[in-house]
Every structure is written in C-alpha cells, then in structure tokens.
C-alpha cells in the first residue's frame, strides 16, 4: 500500500492499461523503452531510433527541413479552418476575407496562414542552402535533392495560387502579372514563339481562347473561373501531389543512409 502511494502520477498513468494500449511501450525511461517509443510510433518512426551526434546539432541541420514540414502541417490546419468561412466566388470572396478579421472571434487565422506561407518559402530556400553547403546532395542522395527541388517549386506555386484568393487589387494584379507569362509559352501560349505555326490553313489552333494560359486561369482574363480554379489547385491539387513527394522525400532520406555526415 505504502509503495503505491509514493508512485508519481506519471508512473501510475504509464502503467495503466489505457496508456499502454496507446503508447505501447509505457513511459520511456530505459534505453530500450526509449528506442521502442520511436520505433513503435507511426509518427516518430520517420526517424531512426538512434542518430549520430552531429545530426541533433542545430548548427548542422538548422532544423530547416523539419520546420518546412511543420509549416506545411500548420498551413494545412489553418487552411482547413479558413475554408469554413471562405467562398471562392467573385461575389463573396473579398467580403468573406473582411469577415475573417472583423466577425470571427480571435480572427488572426488569415494572418497565421499568410505569414506561415511566406515563412515556408523562405525556410525551404534556407533548407536548400544548408543541404548545398554541406554537400548533402552528393551520391547516393542525388535523387532526393531532385525531389526536394520539385517540392520547393511546388511550395512557390502553392503560395502563388493562394495569393489570388483574397480577391483584392494586390491579388488579381499579382496573378495577372504571373499568369501573363504563360501567354508567351513556346508553341502552347498564344503569344509564344511557334504558336502561329500550329495552324490548319488559316485556323490557329493556339489562340487566346485555347492556350496554356486559358487552361491555367480558365478564361481570357483573371476572373470568376480563375478564382475557382486557383482555389481547387491551392486547397486540393498541389497539397495532394506535395504529400506524395514528401513521402518519397522522407522515405529516401532513410533509404539513402539517413542524415548526411562526414565519414
């Protein structure tokens, strides 16, 4: 009886059936239990159980890769919450954004989302700088560097598509400037070199109503269709593809021998 009383709450909890059923290994105290805690958790087993010492030093990794992932999760959560209030139509989009700050209690969700998005672009760039400066792209990690470059491109595209959604002057003109470049795509943009060669007789196959810019913004100018298209790309399409690439990225880190380090 006396022994039982002296036990800490944590220890009692750690030995309970509920705790053990969830965490499997109990409170990780011994070396064996601690390794088990990592291996037995679906989230933590992204990591190996043990790491070389330099791998846990901030000076080496800058934690930038982990922060990129954290920001992605953060943006997914804040993004889902924003979707409760936001309707992607020309009629409602702008007023919904105003409501987000003025009507919704503690309305900083849009701020959190926007600043996390800008931070993510920067953090991903810095992650690339770290990987380059430590030469971590060298064999056998060439492929994973490529996956990372694509993830970075997607991050910027994700940020770009999100830029339109507030439907203010800043948004449509930034997206107009950006999507106007697609006009000039060789062969498939109507003002690109070679587009006029794709014609049957006098009929141009690539014109303002059928080129790649039209496909991207769903119209001849940035309008209602663009808003819906960018909303779907921003909320569903790119995050979906990115998750697949992230899975490959993380898996390949482990398969390519874990974190890079001096031999």
């Amino acid at each position: 009886m006396a022994d039982k009383k002296n036990k800490s709450i944590l220890k009692t909890m750690g030995e309970s059936q509920i705790w053990k059923s969830i965490i499997r290994s109990g409170v990780p105290r011994t070396r064996r239990q601690r390794m088990h805690a990592v291996l037995g958790s679906v989230f933590l087993h992204l990591h190996p159980a043990r790491l070389p010492k330099h791998a846990v030093k901030l000076g080496y990794t800058w934690c930038m890769g982990g922060l990129s992932f954290f920001l992605f999760v953060n943006l997914t959560i804040t993004g889902i919450l924003l979707m409760f209030y936001y309707r992607p139509t020309v009629e409602y989009a702008y007023t919904d954004i105003i409501d987000l700050t003025e009507q919704v209690p503690l309305g900083i969700m849009r701020e959190l989302h926007r600043w996390a998005a800008h931070s993510m672009v920067l953090v991903v760039w810095l992650h690339m700088l770290r990987v380059f400066m430590t030469g971590s792209y060298k064999p056998p990690r060439e492929f994973n560097w490529g996956v990372g470059v694509l993830l970075m491109t997607m991050t910027m595209f994700l940020s770009f598509t999100g830029y339109l959604l507030p439907w203010d002057q800043l948004a449509i003109w930034a997206v107009t400037v950006g999507s106007n470049m697609a006009r000039a795509h060789p062969f498939i943009g109507h003002e690109g070199p070679g587009a006029s060669l794709l014609a049957i007789g006098d009929i141009n196959l690539v014109h303002i109503g059928s080129d790649v810019r039209f496909a991207l913004i769903g119209g001849r100018f940035v309008g209602e269709a663009t808003l819906l298209r960018f909303y779907v790309i921003h909320c569903i399409a790119v995050p979906f593809i990115m998750m697949i690439f992230m899975a490959v990225h993380f898996w390949r880190i482990r398969k390519d021998g874990g974190i890079s380090g001096p031999l």
Partner: peptide
C-alpha cells in the same frame, strides 16, 4: 561534425 560512428544518441529524447 565528425563523431565516433558507434557513439550515437537516442532520438527520444535528444532529437524529439
């Protein structure tokens, strides 16, 4: 950055 390859640290708690 070099450390003895046998001298590793545990992810729980050192990295987590």
């Amino acid at each position: 950055e070099y450390n003895d390859p046998d001298d590793k640290v545990l992810v729980w708690p050192d990295l987590v």
